[in-house]
Computed example of a mutant assay.
Amino acid sequence: MKKIVAVFGILAGLINAAIAMLLTTLAGDDMIHANSEWVGYLVMIIALSMIFVGVKQYRDKHLGGVIKFGKAFLVGLYIALVASALYVGSWEVYLQTSDVDFIETYSTSIIENMKAEGEPEAEIQAMQEQLQFYADIYENTFFRILMTLSEILPVGLIIALISAALLRKSSFMPDEENINTQATAT
């Protein structure tokens, strides 16, 4: 199980980091703005699909095509934790090695969007105060890591739950080898 977790966790983390960095490089500051959150979550879902692949491979290659929900969820959780650690680590490296001031760019884009949508000045002022509060928190490395982790880990948990629910059924996407074994057993 350790090898499956390591391989698919690292693969998910690398896919996520590579696609995110590629999109950020290609789109520049536009990719960092608040209106691109859906792209970030789409990238996470694509990368974290490795949870499903890892759990399926563990079920089919190491457990003969049968896995219980709890075991499948644990494998998925461990893959999600490895991928999340790589995601957080790559974000920290990116912040330290680039001249991007993420929190400033993010805050500016939110305020600009609010102004463009004609939001009342009182709401804009309240949002500026809230953004300043988060900017102060974001300066603390520990809290920044927790905030970054809270972006990806819940997505990984959801995918681990879905994968466990689907793959606990040995009839769901059985491996060719396991189909032949089941056919000869009956």
Rank of each mutant, 00 (worst) to 15 (best):
K3V: 12
I4K: 04
V5H: 00
F8R: 00
I10C: 11
L11I: 14
G13I: 05
N16L: 14
A17N: 07
A17G: 06
A18V: 15
I19P: 13
M21C: 05
T24Y: 05
T25C: 07
L26D: 07
A27I: 10
G28Y: 00
D29Y: 04
M31Y: 15
M31E: 15
I32Y: 13
A34Y: 15
S36P: 04
V39K: 12
Y41I: 10
I46W: 02
A47L: 08
L48T: 04
M50Q: 08
I51R: 01
F52K: 08
F52Y: 15
Q57V: 09
R59A: 01
R59W: 01
D60K: 00
L63H: 10
V66F: 14
V66C: 09
I67Y: 03
K68V: 14
K68C: 10
G70S: 12
G70Q: 09
F73H: 02
V75T: 06
G76N: 00
L77T: 01
L77V: 05
Y78W: 11
L81P: 02
A85N: 05
L86P: 05
L86W: 09
V88F: 03
V88S: 06
V93M: 00
L95C: 08
Q96G: 12
I103Q: 14
E104N: 14
T105G: 12
T105K: 13
I111K: 04
I111G: 06
E112D: 13
E112Q: 07
N113F: 13
K115Y: 02
E117K: 13
E123M: 15
I124T: 01
Q125P: 01
A126R: 02
E129W: 06
Q130G: 09
Q132T: 14
Y134C: 06
Y134D: 08
I137P: 03
E139Y: 10
N140D: 13
F143C: 00
F143H: 01
F143S: 07
L146V: 14
T148Q: 13
L149T: 04
E151Y: 15
I152E: 05
I152T: 12
L153Q: 04
V155T: 10
G156Y: 00
S163P: 08
S163Q: 05
L166S: 10
L167F: 03
K169A: 12
K169E: 09
M173D: 07
M173K: 13
P174I: 02
P174D: 03
D175Y: 12
D175M: 04
E176L: 11
I179H: 07
I179G: 03
T181C: 08
A183Q: 09
A183G: 03
A185T: 08
